[in-house]
């Protein structure tokens, strides 16, 4: 991949956006009028992380399709890296979601559609790594992982839809068909945090890819000297 922007620049950019988003969230966006009050501020972290996790799995999905078409190990590497980061972000979603849940609803866990979906997402993508760990042959591992990654990503919106069937969700529906339902100042802060988080993901993917590439090269070199 071409180096359009170097990784450090991306990290710094992500940092700037995230800090700005956070400052705006506390100084500019209004304190939530409902009972949540200050605890609602975690939204400016929680939602961008969730969005970023999904973006990461989306990247893995695209990489999987490209891998199956080309059998090029580079796409497999991109797949692993994005799934791993997506999983980390998903765990963060669960953690921040639970903290928020405790503050807003008085309970750490609730079988609410979005939280439940992310729980299943975590299971799914942990399974992805279990699957990878039990296939020795490299090409086969990459192929199976790609197939699973495609199936899993298709399943995510379906799971979300299905969990919505269950009655009595108490998650605030912030973004609906009719608009965001947020005051402008809140939306700006949220949007900046979202850009920051996405940039962070890109930067992390970039860095992890480099690491994986080095690992592969080390393995190749080791093989070539008969180690």
């Amino acid at each position: 991949m071409k180096q359009l922007v170097s990784a450090p620049v991306l990290f710094v950019g992500a940092g700037i956006f995230l800090v700005t988003g956070l400052l705006l969230a506390f100084l500019y966006a209004p304190i939530d009028a409902s009972t949540m009050g200050y605890s609602q501020k975690i939204f400016f972290y929680h939602a961008p992380i969730a969005e970023t996790a999904l973006v990461a799995f989306g990247v893995a999905f695209v990489a999987a399709i490209l891998y199956l078409r080309s059998q090029d190990p580079r796409w497999d590497r991109l797949g692993v890296v994005s799934v791993r980061l997506g999983l980390v972000f998903s765990l963060l979603v669960m953690a921040t979601g639970m903290i928020w849940g405790k503050a807003a609803w008085g309970t750490w866990w609730d079988w609410e559609p979005r939280l439940t979906t992310f729980l299943l997402v975590c299971f799914l993508y942990v399974a992805y790594f279990v699957l990878r760990s039990v296939v020795e042959e490299e090409q086969r591992r990459a192929t199976f992982a790609a197939v699973f990654s495609i199936i899993a990503f298709i399943d995510v919106p379906i799971t979300f839809f299905a969990t919505r069937f269950l009655p009595a969700g108490m998650h605030p529906t912030v973004i609906t068909m009719g608009g965001t339902g947020m005051p402008g100042s809140m939306f700006v802060s949220f949007f900046i945090s979202m850009i920051g988080m996405t940039l962070l993901l890109v930067a992390l993917i970039r860095r992890d890819l480099a690491v994986e590439e080095l690992k592969d090269r080390v393995a190749d070199l080791k093989n070539s000297i008969g180690g």
């Binding site: 399974a127 899993a152 299905a162």
Partner: peptide, 28 residues
Amino acid sequence: LATISMNTRSRDLLLPIIFLPLIVPVLI
């Protein structure tokens, strides 16, 4: 999924792990 899991080292151990989370929507 069974086709995939059969081709791996752990075979029948893997299947529930990859099958169950995906089948939850149907179950619901």
